[in-house]
Design a protein around this nucleic acid. Sequence first.
DNA 1: TAAATAAATTAGCCAAGGCTAATTTATGAA
DNA 2: TTCATAAATTAGCCTTGGCTAATTTATTTA
Lengths: 145, 145
Amino acid sequence: MIKSGNKSSSAAEDYLERIQELIEAKGYARMVDIAASLGISQASVTNMVKRLDTEGFVLYEKYRGLVLTPEGERIAKEIARRHRILTDFLSQLGVSSEEVERDVEGMEHHLSLDSLEAIERLCQQLTCHPDLLAKIKHGSNKGIL
Amino acid sequence: MIKSGNKSSSAAEDYLERIQELIEAKGYARMVDIAASLGISQASVTNMVKRLDTEGFVLYEKYRGLVLTPEGERIAKEIARRHRILTDFLSQLGVSSEEVERDVEGMEHHLSLDSLEAIERLCQQLTCHPDLLAKIKHGSNKGIL
DNA sequence: TAAATAAATTAGCCAAGGCTAATTTATGAA
DNA sequence: TTCATAAATTAGCCTTGGCTAATTTATTTA
């Protein structure tokens, strides 16, 4: 998904997002850490990283590690942004953080820029209308406990 | 996706939704129509319908047609509901109908009930606040033309 | 009702993305 | 520096969900 530039699958986007997060957090992204972070096997990571390399999202040298290309980084940051916006949105609506996480994970690859930015503006507006948000959350049965 | 009852993949859910739509519109769902409606080959439909049968979502007899089981119908209706709610939501935000269609198609399989119903309540509230919606749409560059 | 056409099915293929088991390379500690 | 362990890779397999081409069954029409 994601329109401009090269095509990347949902799976590829997930990898790029996590790789970027690891690099930000620790300066590098090892295969073993990518695997742990995504909850999949190291072998699967090796395969996908090879693909990401041939498709130009990553520079990879066997046994030596990998870095994102500018294009890979662009996609990683775009996905991170979608993640942020959608997480904010569902959190504002009072959805529990575990559900937010799962739902966002699934949705973030399927939204046009237009929809995403409309939701972003909506969040902005909702911030100034806590009364409205209160009514929405009130409908929820898992209220303030 | 969809929690309660049997598991169904996103693809299976798409099939069930379309089958239900065809049955509602014409009283029956032929392989050739399901294929046309989903934009895939008849052979692929035959395969998936067999699977939907063995998984209990559909009753199918070779060359004789198919009907939804109660469970299949339950899922079809649940997906249709998600489709409705998400379509309403993005439309309210001023997203173009083609984009709404594509986005909803992608998202509808990935939302928890909690998130879905929070969005439903949000739409309800937004209906009473056209001023708010106006501001959101205003941020869009493809405004009133 | 027999032949032509439309619909459905089968067989066999492909790519994406997972997996495990076995092997190879790198690295840290004695 | 050598050996034990950790990390990475390879080989080979699986499922999902597509596809085309060939075949079979149903249906329509002359």
